[in-house]
């Protein structure tokens, strides 16, 4: 475990806690895409199938449980919590994410480390994570303004993936035969998706104006 990966996991955890805090404190989920949260819950459920079969470390196991539990908690809140669900922008969150799920699954069947259930679902979760933010970015574009907590949420999420890429570069140079092509390429695509958001976030921070995404 190197510092980049640990920092990546921490920023990932922070992004989820920011979201939980925002929903719990304001009892509102305005501006949050339920579809993105459902995709993330699916990412964790399909990636951590080995939760009970392969023990890597206590840290890994605890973090996997935290990620699964928190993502399901967010989805449950947005769907079931009487107060929160009222503030969900159903007619703005219209990204047809089922096609994305299907495309990722087909890709995972074709491109995987080994053609086993666990590896196919692992590759599926890697591809899905790369595009899971799309409904959220579309929702931000639609709603025009980005309230600061949602903006920070996306910022930490992008930082997590960016740190993971540095972690893979570090491991590539320090460990022999370390290759994670599937995760690396997919992680690069994912970070690229955030790049435009980062650009507008930086502009709004620099010009000290409210973050506006071009419609």
């Amino acid at each position: 475990m190197n510092i980049f990966r640990f920092a990546g996991d921490m920023t990932h955890l922070i992004s989820i806690l920011i979201l939980l805090l925002k929903i719990y404190a304001t009892k509102s989920c305005a501006g949050i895409s339920l579809k993105t949260q459902e995709l993330y819950a699916l990412v964790f459920l399909t990636r951590y199938l080995d939760l009970f079969t392969d023990y890597v470390s206590l840290y890994n196991t605890v973090m996997k449980i935290v990620f699964i539990a928190s993502s399901l908690a967010i989805v449950w809140c947005m769907r079931r919590h009487p107060l929160v669900r009222r503030s969900y922008d159903k007619d703005l969150d219209t990204f047809r994410h089922q096609y994305v799920v299907l495309a990722c699954f087909v890709l995972a069947l074709l491109l995987n480390e080994k053609f086993t259930i666990q590896e196919v679902f692992w590759a599926f979760s890697i591809y899905l994570e790369a595009v899971a933010i799309l409904p959220q970015l579309v929702l931000l574009q639609r709603s025009g303004n980005v309230d600061n907590l949602t903006g920070q949420y996306v910022l930490f999420l992008g930082a997590y993936r960016g740190l993971y890429i540095i972690n893979w570069i570090y491991r590539y140079f320090t460990e022999d035969h370390f290759t994670r092509w599937i995760a690396c390429v997919s992680g690069l695509v994912q970070t690229g998706l955030y790049a435009d958001f980062f650009y507008y976030y930086y502009l709004s921070w620099k010009t000290n104006t409210k973050l506006k995404l071009p419609a």
Binding site: R5, D9, D54, V56, S57, M63, E113, K114, Y164, A183
Partner: peptide
């Protein structure tokens, strides 16, 4: 037996 490839990252 070869060490089954573990995904040691999250």
């Amino acid at each position: 037996p070869i060490q089954q490839r573990l995904h040691d990252e999250l």
